[in-house]
């Protein structure tokens, strides 16, 4: 009774009074199957020639983010419940920093690369970055 007023520890699943361990196994098994389906789709999409090639990278990124979501929900038991607000807020801040670091680095380096002067004629070195 008093447990409910505290936040929930990340990784802890809410344990209802009348449930056995079988429902916990069911949650993990559901997560495993969803993750397997998403992984198999990723490997198929990377190796097939049926899909529009320029869209493959975007599709792979979407599949990876979906699978990360599956892991967070079914393995780490992150929910939207009020006892999980702190965990979700910390996660949201982490995701923000990850996005800023990755997207910012790619943007800045691509921009630098574009505005680099072409190499002088005598030194015919391939300059990638």
């Amino acid at each position: 009774m008093t447990e409910t007023q505290y936040d929930r520890a990340p990784g802890d699943r809410p344990v209802l009074a009348d449930e056995g361990t079988s429902s916990g196994v069911l949650v993990y098994t559901t997560g495993l199957f969803l993750a397997l389906i998403l992984t198999a789709t990723s490997f198929w999409a990377a190796n097939t020639s049926l899909l529009w090639a320029p869209g493959t990278h975007l599709g792979l990124a979407v599949l990876a983010i979906a699978q990360m979501g599956v892991h967070l929900v079914f393995f780490l038991h992150i929910t939207t419940g009020p006892d999980n607000t702190n965990n979700v807020l910390a996660l949201a801040f982490g995701v923000l920093i990850v996005f800023l670091v990755v997207a910012g680095s790619l943007w800045i380096m691509a921009d630098l690369n574009d505005s680099m002067m072409p190499p002088a004629q005598p030194m015919n070195m391939p300059m990638h970055h």
């Binding site: 936040d7 929930r8 520890a9 990340p10 990784g11 802890d12 702190n86 965990n87 996660l91």
Partner: peptide, 8 residues
């Protein structure tokens, strides 16, 4: 809760 949150 405190330990798990810190590790999170």
């Amino acid at each position: 809760i405190i330990v798990a949150y810190g590790f999170w």
